[in-house]
Protein backbone atom coordinates (compact mmCIF):
# COMPACT_ATOMS: atom_id res chain seq x y z
CA UNK A 1 0.00 0.00 0.00
CA UNK A 2 1.44 3.44 -0.93
CA UNK A 3 2.71 5.34 2.12
CA UNK A 4 2.72 9.15 2.45
CA UNK A 5 6.00 10.80 3.52
CA UNK A 6 6.84 14.41 4.29
CA UNK A 7 10.09 16.26 4.95
CA UNK A 8 8.76 18.51 7.72
CA UNK A 9 12.03 20.47 7.94
CA UNK A 10 11.89 21.33 4.24
CA UNK A 11 8.21 22.41 4.29
CA UNK A 12 7.78 26.17 3.81
CA UNK A 13 4.00 26.41 4.07
CA UNK A 14 3.39 27.13 0.38
CA UNK A 15 0.30 24.93 0.78
CA UNK A 16 -0.19 23.75 -2.80
CA UNK A 17 -0.62 20.21 -1.44
CA UNK A 18 -3.54 21.25 0.80
CA UNK A 19 -5.26 22.86 -2.13
CA UNK A 20 -4.75 19.86 -4.42
CA UNK A 21 -5.50 17.05 -1.93
CA UNK A 22 -7.26 18.39 1.19
CA UNK A 23 -8.25 14.88 2.32
CA UNK A 24 -4.64 13.84 2.95
CA UNK A 25 -2.69 17.09 3.50
CA UNK A 26 -3.34 19.94 5.92
CA UNK A 27 -1.25 22.68 7.49
CA UNK A 28 -0.76 23.56 11.17
CA UNK A 29 -0.69 26.95 12.90
CA UNK A 30 3.05 27.23 12.24
CA UNK A 31 2.51 26.70 8.52
CA UNK A 32 3.95 23.17 8.45
CA UNK A 33 2.34 20.30 6.54
CA UNK A 34 0.25 17.73 8.45
CA UNK A 35 -0.36 14.25 7.03
CA UNK A 36 -4.00 13.38 7.70
CA UNK A 37 -3.45 9.72 6.74
CA UNK A 38 -0.51 7.35 6.65
CA UNK A 39 -1.44 5.33 3.60
CA UNK A 40 -3.47 5.81 0.44
CA UNK A 41 -5.05 3.39 -2.02
CA UNK A 42 -3.59 2.63 -5.44
CA UNK A 43 -6.73 4.07 -6.95
CA UNK A 44 -6.24 7.54 -5.48
CA UNK A 45 -2.48 7.49 -6.01
CA UNK A 46 -2.39 9.45 -9.30
CA UNK A 47 -4.27 12.40 -7.79
CA UNK A 48 -2.14 12.41 -4.62
CA UNK A 49 1.03 12.03 -6.70
CA UNK A 50 0.12 15.16 -8.62
CA UNK A 51 -0.56 16.99 -5.34
CA UNK A 52 2.84 15.91 -3.99
CA UNK A 53 4.55 17.12 -7.17
CA UNK A 54 2.94 20.55 -6.71
CA UNK A 55 5.17 21.13 -3.66
CA UNK A 56 7.65 23.89 -4.60
CA UNK A 57 10.33 22.47 -2.27
CA UNK A 58 9.74 18.77 -3.09
CA UNK A 59 8.96 17.98 0.55
CA UNK A 60 6.36 15.32 -0.26
CA UNK A 61 6.85 11.78 -1.51
CA UNK A 62 4.84 8.60 -1.85
CA UNK A 63 6.62 5.33 -1.19
CA UNK A 64 5.73 1.68 -1.68
CA UNK A 65 5.92 -0.43 1.43
Amino acid sequence: MPVLKADFAACQGYANCVDAAPTVYDIDDDGIVVLLRETITDEERPRIEEAARSCPVSALTIEDE
Partner: peptide, 11 residues
Protein backbone atom coordinates in the same frame (compact mmCIF):
# COMPACT_ATOMS: atom_id res chain seq x y z
CA UNK B 1 3.74 35.12 7.55
CA UNK B 2 0.42 33.30 7.86
CA UNK B 3 0.13 30.13 5.72
CA UNK B 4 -2.84 28.86 7.74
CA UNK B 5 -4.89 31.91 6.75
CA UNK B 6 -3.68 31.56 3.18
CA UNK B 7 -5.08 28.03 2.97
CA UNK B 8 -8.44 29.15 4.28
CA UNK B 9 -8.56 32.19 2.00
CA UNK B 10 -7.59 30.16 -1.06
CA UNK B 11 -10.63 27.97 -0.43
Amino acid sequence: NWPKALVQCRR
